[in-house]
Amino acid sequence: MGDVLAIAEQKDGKIRSVANEVVTVAAAVAEGLGGSAHALVLGGDGVGEHAGELGTFGAEVVRVGEEAALESHVPEIHAAVIAEVVASHDYTAVLFAATAVGKDLAPRVAALVDAPLASDVTHLEVNGGRLVGIRPIYGGKLMARIGFETSPAVVSLRPNAFGADGSPASGRVEPFTPAIPDEVRTRVVDFRSAEAGAVDVSEATVIVSGGRGMRGAENWGLLEDLRNALGPGTALGASRAVVDAGWRPHSEQVGQTGKTVAPRLYFAVGISGAVQHLAGMRTSQTIVAINKDPDAPIFSVADYGIVGDVFEVLPRLTSEIAALRAEG
């Protein structure tokens, strides 16, 4: 009792940094419950090579399932293997990252092990011996405090909403042989990557988002320059008006019918700040708005605002930030 399982996501054979956050939360919660944190790593050959490093973030045990069939993300297979691991031990909670992969897997695992699921949680704690979570609802207009009536509870954690806390330690790696379901009715037939080297908004630590105030797709070079000046980990985002106009792809849309993001730094450039846009980005750590209209609602959530024309402000902002980063 009291043990918590962290599902550590991997991509191209490497454990993703978001897994460090999930393990950190698992360790904190397990401590409160009087148990220990385990991590689960699944993938193809060699995925377990660095698995012990999850011990740094508090995983006492790292269970590693290496199997060619787990190399690509076929959700039916991954869900079945995870469910088997969950069922093999008395876990109080199972934590996923609320990434595209985690949001796809968590409900399947919850259904397989017959456990309720709280998605996209932004706070998780143990209170009076019970697990309690907080999750935004109604597009972030309300926060719901959630109690779990049964164990295990399945939870997915909003990326970037929790930190990763490391201290030198190493987890005990326990390899196991996953049972791969033989009848699979899902086949991944193709993958088309977005622009090479581009960071997805849902993974980015810094986001530069453009709105209708950018006036047209042809002006996106200005936002790309700012993104490049801000360095790796920076993604481009967009408002729905921009996506509807066909200036940018839907994969970049932030908001209620786009992605929910919580980066360290969010630039809203020429975006008015409609409620549906705010729904996707209001939990960002620091928000900067640039808009020529001093009454634009975006200023009510922005930490810092500049009232001005984006076409004047952006080039200067890019060069100042580039200069700052060049200084080191």
Binding site: A115, P116, L117, A118, V132, P136, G140, K141, L142, M143, A144, R145, I146, G147, F148, E149, T150, A153, R282, T283, I287, P294, F299, S300, V301, A302, D303, Y304, G305, I306, V307, G308, D309, E312, V313, R316, L317, E320
Partner: peptide
């Protein structure tokens, strides 16, 4: 339901932001 809403709250107000200035001089 095995997942219960114990309480609803409004999201924490973001700390009062500020307009740093107008135009390119504010950069």
């Amino acid at each position: 339901a095995r997942l219960t809403v114990e309480r609803l709250d409004y999201p924490p107000e973001r700390a009062e932001g500020r307009i740093v200035g107008e135009g390119v001089e504010a950069v």
